[in-house]
C-alpha cells in the first residue's frame, strides 16, 4: 500500500488546512502523480486540483511533490516516492483557494507587467519579417515556458516580494523578448526592469532551474538581463536594437 498525504483545505468548512492521509494500493505499473490523484478523486470527489493536457505542455498541474515543485502529469511515482510515502502540497508562496489549487493572480500580474508581447511599431512587410536561424536560435530555451509557476513559487525572493520582484518565470519571458531580433523596445523594456526589485531581487539561489519541468534556465536569462542593464548603465548607446548579442 502507498501512504499518500494530501494538503486539504476547503474554505467553506475548514478553519485551517490539514494533511489527509489516503491508503492506495500500489499500482502494478509506474504511473504519473496525476494518475494517482485521479485514482484518489474517484474515491473522494471532494479533492480539487487543476489539470488539462496531461502531457506537460499546458502548465495546469504544478504542485509541490515530496518537497519539490513539478508537474503532476509528467512526474512518475517511481521518481518521487520515498519508500511508500508521498506528500503533495499546493505550490508554495501563493494563496490557496482550495486543496491543491492556488490563486495565481500575483504570478500572472508579474507576467503582464513585463509586456509579454512583441513590440515593433514599424510597418510590417506584406509577408513575414525575416529572422535568421541564428537569431531564431536565441529564442530556444525561452519561448517554451508554459507558465506553470513551478519556478517562481520555488523562489524565496518571490515568496518575500511577489508584488515587486518579477520572478523567474516572467523574467524568462522578459528576456525572450529582449532576445528577439524583431523587437524594437529593448531600451524601454530594460528601463522598466532597472529598479532595485524587478530583477535585482534575484540572488542566484537557482531553485528555479531545479524546479523547471521543461528544463529551462531562468537564472541564465536573468543573468543576461542583468548584464544588459549593466552595459546600458556604463554606456547607454551600447544597447541597440539587437542589444541581446552585443
Amino acid at each position: 500500500m502507498l501512504e499518500i498525504n494530501l494538503y486539504r483545505y476547503n474554505p467553506e468548512k475548514d478553519k485551517f488546512p490539514f494533511m489527509q492521509q489516503y491508503q492506495i494500493k500500489k499500482p502494478e505499473k509506474d504511473i504519473m502523480v496525476l494518475d494517482l490523484l485521479h485514482l484518489i478523486k474517484e474515491e473522494d470527489n471532494s479533492l480539487s486540483f487543476r489539470r488539462s493536457c496531461r502531457e506537460g505542455v499546458c502548465g495546469s498541474d504544478g504542485m509541490n511533490i515530496n518537497g519539490k515543485n513539478g508537474l503532476a502529469c509528467i512526474t512518475p511515482l517511481s521518481d518521487v516516492l520515498k519508500g511508500n510515502k508521498l506528500e503533495i502540497r499546493p505550490l508554495p508562496g501563493l494563496p490557496v483557494i482550495r486543496d491543491l489549487v492556488v490563486d495565481m493572480t500575483e504570478f500572472y500580474n508579474q507576467y503582464e507587467k513585463i509586456k509579454p508581447f512583441l513590440q515593433n511599431d514599424s510597418e510590417p512587410p506584406a509577408e513575414e519579417r525575416l529572422q535568421s536561424p541564428k537569431d531564431r536560435d536565441k529564442l530556444d530555451g525561452l519561448y517554451e515556458c508554459i507558465l506553470c509557476a513551478c519556478c517562481s513559487t520555488s523562489c524565496p525572493s518571490f515568496w518575500w516580494n511577489p508584488d515587486k520582484f518579477v520572478g523567474p518565470a516572467a523574467l524568462l519571458q522578459a528576456y525572450r523578448f529582449l532576445a528577439d531580433s524583431r523587437d524594437l523596445e529593448k531600451d524601454s523594456r530594460l528601463e522598466a526592469l532597472s529598479d532595485p526589485f524587478s530583477v535585482y531581487r534575484c540572488h542566484g539561489i537557482m531553485n528555479c532551474v531545479a524546479a523547471c519541468p521543461k528544463g529551462l534556465n531562468p537564472n541564465k536569462a536573468i543573468g543576461e538581463i542583468k548584464s544588459m542593464l549593466l552595459k546600458g548603465k556604463n554606456s547607454k548607446n551600447l544597447i541597440t536594437s539587437d542589444g541581446a548579442t552585443k
Partner: peptide, 9 residues
C-alpha cells in the same frame, strides 16, 4: 508572425 510567433526559419 507579426504578432511575434517564434516560427522556425
Amino acid at each position: 508572425e507579426h504578432m511575434g510567433l517564434p516560427f522556425s526559419r
